[in-house]
Amino acid sequence: MEKKSIEQLEQIASQVRRDCLRMVHAVQSGHPGASLGCTEFFTALYFDQLNHDPNFNMEGKGEDLFFLSNGHISPVWYSVLSRSGYFSPEEMNTFRKLNSRLQGHPATEEGLPGIRIASGSLGQGLSVAIGAAQAKKIDGDKSTVYVLMGDGEQEEGQIWEAAMYAAHWKVDNLIATIDLNRQQIDGATKDIMNLIDLRAKYESFGWEVNDIFQGNDMKSVVEGLEKAKGLSRQGKPVLNLLHTEMGFGVDFMVGTHKWHGIAPSDEQLAEALGQLPETLGDY
């Protein structure tokens, strides 16, 4: 894959945001907020960082693997998968509709290329990614396994079972990321269940922690992910704390949990798309 410039990545990100909003609007359901917040991360991952093959095979030997633990932000994942060649962008028309491969939450049941595990019920993806990473180690496969989690998701107990395990077994070919947008369905995480200091928590569990303070700035995200790669394979699992704003890229959606799981109206969609240039052609 030809190395893309930051500007090119930003242009892709604009289209990804359009895709997310159009998918959610078309079916009047889905989760736009954190999809927009994680757009730089997904774009950087699929168009710059991952060594991956859009001619999908489940095992992915010799490839970097990505798992989405907070499956509700499926729109952004479906967009980058289709825009990087896993399936036709037209298929985004079927998002959340009957007989679609683009289920509300990602699934393997319908055989959508790019998806290796179902997710949606929170707290499970970190364990799955660790297992995939350990299997690669058994085989001497030098590639890296990535997983994204939500910050609210850190409230699930299984996450901490997995965090303990990864450090104990020195799963250092794993780069986990937490989307630190400080919001969850019922409000701000500090009010719902205060996460306090995730860096201190993970460090005390034996992880290497890497802050990406500007998670909606493409250059910072690419540099942060590069840095994480450099921290991997040194005996510890790596965690990125990706500081993002929910709804980023659309002025009336940014920074609130209000758009966690609701769709824009016709007027709101038009207003939002007016702020996001169409760069790769709408599906």
Partner: peptide
Amino acid sequence: ERFFQTGIAEANMMGIAAGMTINGKIP
């Protein structure tokens, strides 16, 4: 080299096992 003690953490064990299958392992 093919055996993994998970500690008293069964939920994590099920997830790890699921992840290992992706590379063709039979956990």
